[in-house]
Write a protein that binds this DNA or RNA. Structure first.
Lengths: 215, 215
DNA sequence: CATGCGCCCATGTGATCACAAATCGCGCGC
DNA sequence: GCGCGCGATTTGTGATCACATGGGCGCATG
């Protein structure tokens, strides 16, 4: 229909839509319970229903969105039980990823993690929920990328995705006013090469936030 | 096999296709590297490309199928590294699911698990790879259903799905001639209410098969 | 004023078509 | 005999359309 501009990278329409929505969901930019329609998204992104349908169904398959019995797609409103489960999964998988990253975590990586942590603190200072969530996840992902475990990383990212919409609610409910102190413990354990300490730091960092919401 | 109940619900075409393919993949009925085309599947199931595309993309999103850069869809040929990762994920998550199921595992459940195990032994005797894989997974799923943890169960099922096509290859390579002896250990631990023993039995049962292939 | 009923529009589903790109095979040339 | 290139066919992508359904809103009725 409207293929006019020269595109630097030829990315399929449904894929752009998917990536955009995925990021919005993971970063908590969409409120729980929000409805998404095929024609609405299509019009918004200048495409037809077909790519919109693909993007939505893909996100539904990953658990990022909920599909009602009539086919309506909304962001999920998680029950406390489900939040507890997802937190438990994070607590199981993320220490393993951190542990696998540890042997490959050199100074350059630790410096980058520190920088992300600084940006995270700035987001806290500015009360910017989206930036807080984004930098927080970026901290973890940057570390886990070193684990060279793409399948595990993919699993943990789909779990982050499922938690996305409630993360925002969690942030406002907790009225966070300090950056996660466990990030510093993670960095310390990385520097010291302390594998059990690293596992513990990651596990507590992951659990502490979610525990408040579920409890 | 276990679903006898009348299904008055009119299931959408793409969903039937999805379920059929998903089961075939998880049970190892499709060989690794096999290609699936939209028009081919559509003709095979008497539908157009649209439902076929949805089913395929959904399976791709779950990691059950691979999507080449040109959009071709095939069953994955897993690298040893990926198999090791998926095995590690099973070893992390499944003991947790078993542990959560333990308090609710009454005699009726243990009896049903025993029956499934018997069917599994018959599949071994008949050298029926698909039946072996199916009963093996049914053993685990029946146990984990008692954990009342749908999110965890969903995650572990997508991991089974990813391992599906290589399970078949694994089976023929190992020339299995006995049912998994760890299933008996799992049952014993369940009867004794031995939580550490159960975790260990599940972990070893899950790991032992995959370790041979990856190693 | 409350409640239930019915109609209309919004929305998902699936089919079909036009198009582009990739793939395969055949034939030509070396 | 072998390799390269070109063309036909296969295949994915996206748009559009017809259709069924479900939800929402207003109107009528008790």
């Amino acid at each position: 229909m409207t293929t006019i501009s020269t595109r630097p990278i030829e990315t399929a329409a449904h894929d752009r839509l998917y990536r955009t929505l995925r990021q919005q969901i993971m970063h908590g930019e969409l409120m729980p319970g929000q409805a998404l329609t095929l024609r609405g998204l299509g019009k918004q992104f200048g495409v037809s229903m077909t790519p919109a349908r693909e993007a939505l169904r893909r996100l539904v398959a990953e658990g990022a969105l909920m599909l009602s019995s009539s086919g309506r797609v909304t962001t999920p409103e998680l029950s406390n039980e489900r939040i507890e489960e997802l937190a438990a999964l994070r607590a199981l998988i993320e220490p393993e990823l951190a542990s696998r990253a540890l042997p490959r975590a050199h100074l350059a990586l630790i410096d980058r993690l520190s920088a992300i942590n600084t940006a995270n603190a700035e987001a806290v200072a500015k009360q910017d929920a989206v930036a807080y969530i984004r930098t927080n996840l970026e901290f973890h992902r940057t570390l886990y990328l070193r684990a060279q475990a793409p399948a595990m990383l993919a699993v943990i990212e789909t779990i982050w995705l499922q938690l996305g919409p409630t993360m925002r609610a969690l942030y406002t409910k907790l009225r966070r006013n300090e950056p996660p102190r466990h990030h510093r413990m993670i960095l310390a354990a990385l520097r010291a090469g302390d594998e059990p300490g690293l596992r513990l730091a990651v596990r507590t960092d992951v659990t502490q936030g979610l525990r408040h919401l579920a409890g």
